[in-house]
């Protein structure tokens, strides 16, 4: 399903744990940016060649999951499948102040956990690119009574640009079939 999952498990040495802490810090900074509504700053954490992808999840017969469970990046329709231009548009839309699905702004808390580095290139000690997996729980409450919980897995490729990590590829697996929310107006 995910090519990165099949790579041999990276050695758990000091360099690995140092790198993982650095990546975790990056994720916490991202969550902080979004949850404190510093959306423009968050955009700076995304690579210029970003691919931001959230497939839909299908109910399929046993044995067909690898092939058919998730919609694909290279064809058809998903929840999100877009570049940085489009994500930037989403931020611009919120900043108009008249994007009524986010006006008044929702309250969100993005929790990131189970962070693992699946691959570090060229190696953990001098990584310029990492492939990671993590779990997320995004809580969103808006206006008075509307509350949504988005829970799932995230598979990222981060690359270092001028010393800073940037999200180059993000695959978000929301653990829902029919979306249990009226909108996906937050970021993941």
């Amino acid at each position: 399903m995910d090519a990165t999952v099949e790579t041999p498990r990276i050695l758990r040495d000091d360099a690995y744990y140092t790198l993982r802490r650095e990546i975790e810090e990056f994720y916490y900074d991202e969550a902080e940016c979004i949850d404190t509504r510093r959306f423009t700053e968050w955009l700076d954490m995304l690579h210029e060649d970003l691919r931001y992808f959230m497939p839909m999840r299908h109910n399929v017969k046993f044995g067909q999951h690898a092939e058919r469970e998730n919609t694909r990046e290279d064809e058809g329709i998903s929840w999100f499948n877009e570049d940085k231009w489009t994500v930037t548009k989403r931020v611009e839309q919120i900043l108009t102040g008249v994007h009524y699905a986010e006006e008044p702004l929702s309250r969100t808390t993005h929790m990131v956990t189970n962070v693992q580095v699946l691959q570090a290139l060229p190696d953990a000690a001098s990584a310029q690119e990492v492939h990671t997996s993590c779990r997320f729980h995004t809580y969103l409450n808006r206006v008075e009574y509307e509350t949504y919980n988005f829970v799932g897995k995230r598979y990222d490729r981060l690359v270092r640009v001028d010393g800073d990590w940037k999200v180059r590829h993000r695959k978000i697996l929301l653990d829902q079939n029919i979306l249990q929310a009226k909108n996906l107006s937050t970021f993941f």
């Binding site: 959230m54 329709i77 998903s78 929840w79 999100f80 499948n81 877009e82 489009t86 548009k89 989403r90 839309q93 994007h99 009524y100 699905a101 986010e102 979306l179 929310a181 009226k182 909108n183 996906l184 107006s185």
Partner: peptide, 13 residues
């Protein structure tokens, strides 16, 4: 995808 559905920037509103 950027227009329609629950993630669509138009249909959300």
């Amino acid at each position: 995808m950027r227009y329609s559905g629950p993630a669509g920037m138009t249909e959300q509103d």
